[in-house]
């Protein structure tokens, strides 16, 4: 039953790939899309498992039994290739090695789940060791010669002085201070509010503003009736436009036209500037946290945040307090995220 479901699923995936290959579906649907990538990858991995099940089911129906040994090897190789070539942005070798080891163990557990399977798995190895046929004999000789040579090469390259870039892990959102002093005024992070997040009565109102941010669908477009560039735009939306103007005169150089951290100068940085469209940045933070980060910049970070790795200026040197609040208002509007609240 399980095999049947698997093969139906796998069949579907095969059809899907065929459609893509012959251009019935647009080729771009194969691309990993920012923000949707983890889901896409999970679907793909599930699809791959289904394909494997289908292929081996169909082969066994057709009377060709792929040896368990090769099944295991193929599956493992597939995982390694997927990690190396499909996942984007590329993950470092050390992480890949970790995933590789885990999946190797998983494959081992699979092939040795019962005595019979284990026997089937190791049979090809034993055949080569025993060398009862001419072919196996040849194979054994090749292995015996190649193995020391390969290991020599491998250990030689690992003994060569390794001068790769050192891996440095920083805390992206370090704990903020309790309060911050900007332009002579002290802001308590737990109680301060964005003075421009207001409803038509001029009261702080998150619900009002949250109803007017861009839509969380592909493209993240503004709501048709909430255009900050409308001549009649007043209050919140007008402040969003003013914040946008400041953003595009100061911030987009690094954080990008789409607030995704790919601005004009972004390529020169390491790490590249923060991507606000990523659900892991401003969507996870309180507005006052952003206010503190913007005002104090990279220099203002505590040590675990690697202040030296950030060129973010302390914007209090360039902008007024009001301008900073407006930029923050704009950033939430443009990405379609709600600022987190303290409770």
């Amino acid at each position: 039953m399980k095999v049947l479901i698997g093969s139906v699923l796998g069949g579907l995936v095969v059809v899907l790939i065929a459609l893509l290959a012959f251009g019935v579906l647009p080729a771009t649907s194969l691309k990993l899309v920012e923000g949707y990538m983890p889901m896409q990858m999970l679907v793909e991995l599930a699809g791959s498992v289904a394909i494997f099940a289908t292929v081996s089911y169909m082969l066994s129906q057709g009377g060709i039994q792929l040896p368990r040994f090769w099944q295991g090897i193929l599956f493992w190789a597939y995982i390694l290739l997927y990690l190396k070539f499909r996942v984007y942005p590329p993950i470092p070798f050390s992480v890949r090695a970790m995933y590789g080891t885990v999946s190797l163990i998983a494959v081992f557990m699979w092939v040795s789940s019962n005595e019979e399977d284990w026997k089937k798995f190791k049979q090809p190895i034993m055949n080569v060791l025993d060398a009862n046929t001419g072919f196996h004999k040849g194979l054994r000789t090749v292995y015996l010669v190649l193995l020391p040579i390969l290991l020599w090469g491998f250990s030689y390259s690992s003994f060569l002085p390794n001068l790769d870039e050192p891996v440095e892990l920083r805390t992206v959102h370090p704990a903020p201070p309790a309060s911050t002093k900007v332009h002579g005024k002290t802001f308590v992070l737990q109680t301060s509010q964005n003075p421009y997040r207001v409803n038509p009565e001029g009261k702080y109102d998150q619900e009002y503003s949250n109803a007017r941010i861009v839509e969380q669908a592909m493209g993240r477009l503004m709501k048709p009736d909430a255009n900050p560039w409308d001549e009649k735009a007043e209050g919140y939306l007008k402040y969003v436009r003013e914040g946008g103007e400041i953003f595009f005169q100061n911030c987009h150089f690094c954080h990008g036209d789409n607030l995704n951290g790919r601005g004009l100068h972004a390529f020169a940085f390491n790490p590249i500037p923060a991507n606000f469209t990523d659900p892991g940045t401003i969507a996870q933070l309180q507005e006052t946290f952003i206010f503190w980060r913007v005002s104090k910049g990279g220099i203002g970070l505590p040590n675990e945040g690697f202040p030296w790795a950030s060129v973010m200026p302390p914007w209090e040197q360039h902008l007024t307090t009001d301008e900073i609040w407006k930029v923050i208002l704009f950033e939430y509007w443009h990405t379609g995220y709600y600022p987190r609240t303290w409770d």
Binding site: L151, W152, L160, N270
Partner: peptide, 30 residues
């Protein structure tokens, strides 16, 4: 951004000795 300057050390002799020992060990193991 910050780059790193690294003075490449000349290849030390151990780089040749240890792999050879390992290879010999593998032959014995075989």
């Amino acid at each position: 951004a910050f780059y790193y300057t690294v003075l490449e050390p000349p290849i030390p002799r151990e780089t040749y000795i240890y792999p050879t020992l390992i290879a010999i060990g593998v032959v014995l193991l075989e």
